[in-house]
């Protein structure tokens, strides 16, 4: 508890947190506007819309997206902030003071994981609160119904929390592994923003060269796992939701455990 309190104080006493809070505003705004427009498009189709179901253009999908607006940006910021919680210590040379105070370094990493989860919950609370106010407005003005009674809406909101938390843990783990602040930030941003496209292409290439069954392995791409968790299987071949969660959790555990082992051994000079 002492260490969590210390980590929270570290976060509160620099300008980092409000820079991230400021970044969240436009990211959320764009996401909301996009989802609002999608709802309008569906509203324009009228009652037939319920029968339409392309992979990413169903009423359920769009309503769910609207109630989880800001997920893309929120998760990205949680991921980066979680990594920076760790890399900051090396970037600002505070690791010496930190590890002198707490020589059991794994406890420091653990406290940072707790704080990253708290950040994830806070960001989720913030965007969800806004969504619960704005999404019903958007939906009544477009499709004419808030859909708040639908269980899938609440499932989407719950899963939204889960992805925030899982990516926060991935962030801490990667921050420990990639000690360089700039290196970690760039790697994670690229991985998160365009990782799906790049890595899917890599898997397609591999499948072409070796064997088609490799393509099924692409679920180990973290962003695809995240999509599976949030959207559920889109076709009969797709794996169930929990596999997505398991993959993300495995990344967090692997990066966290490996990083903690390295941190324990590493010379702080």
């Amino acid at each position: 508890m002492n260490l969590v309190s210390a980590e929270l104080l570290k976060l509160r006493t620099t300008s980092l947190w409000w820079i991230f809070a400021l970044l969240l505003v436009p990211l959320y705004g764009v996401a909301l506007a996009f989802n609002w427009l999608a709802a309008r498009a569906i509203g324009a189709l009228g009652p037939e819309a319920e029968n339409i179901s392309f992979s990413s253009f169903s009423v359920e999908r769009i309503v769910g997206n609207l109630y989880t607006s800001g997920q893309f940006g929120g998760v990205l910021l949680v991921l980066l902030l979680s990594a920076i919680l760790v890399t900051n210590e090396f970037f600002h040379l505070t690791a010496t003071a930190t590890f002198l105070t707490t020589p059991r370094r794994e406890l420091v990493i653990l406290a940072k994981m707790v704080v990253s989860v708290l950040i994830a919950v806070l960001v989720w609370l913030l965007t969800t609160a806004l969504n619960l106010v704005l999404a019903p407005v958007a939906l009544t003005s477009t499709v004419g119904d808030t859909h708040l009674g639908e269980p899938y809406v609440w499932q989407a909101i719950g899963l939204n929390l889960l992805v925030h938390v899982l990516w926060a843990l991935v962030g801490v783990g990667c921050g420990v592994l990639i000690r360089s602040q700039i290196g970690a930030t760039i790697t994670l941003t690229v991985l998160y923003v365009v990782g799906t496209q790049i890595l899917t292409a890599v898997f397609a290439l591999l499948a072409n060269l070796v064997d088609d069954s490799i393509l099924r392995m692409r679920i180990i791409i973290p962003t695809l796992a995240s999509d599976l968790l949030v959207s559920g299987p889109q076709s009969a071949d797709d794996l169930p939701r929990w596999v997505g969660a398991a993959v993300l959790l495995a990344y967090a555990a692997l990066a966290g455990a490996l990083g903690t082992l390295i941190t324990r051994q590493r010379d702080i000079a």
């Binding site: 570290k10 006493t13 620099t14 300008s15 900051n88 600002h92 040379l93 505070t94 010496t96 003071a97 002198l100």
Partner: peptide
């Protein structure tokens, strides 16, 4: 222990 004179975050009091 006093190890180096630069061991605090620049933006922190």
């Amino acid at each position: 222990a006093v190890l180096e004179a630069s061991g605090a975050h620049r933006g922190r009091s």
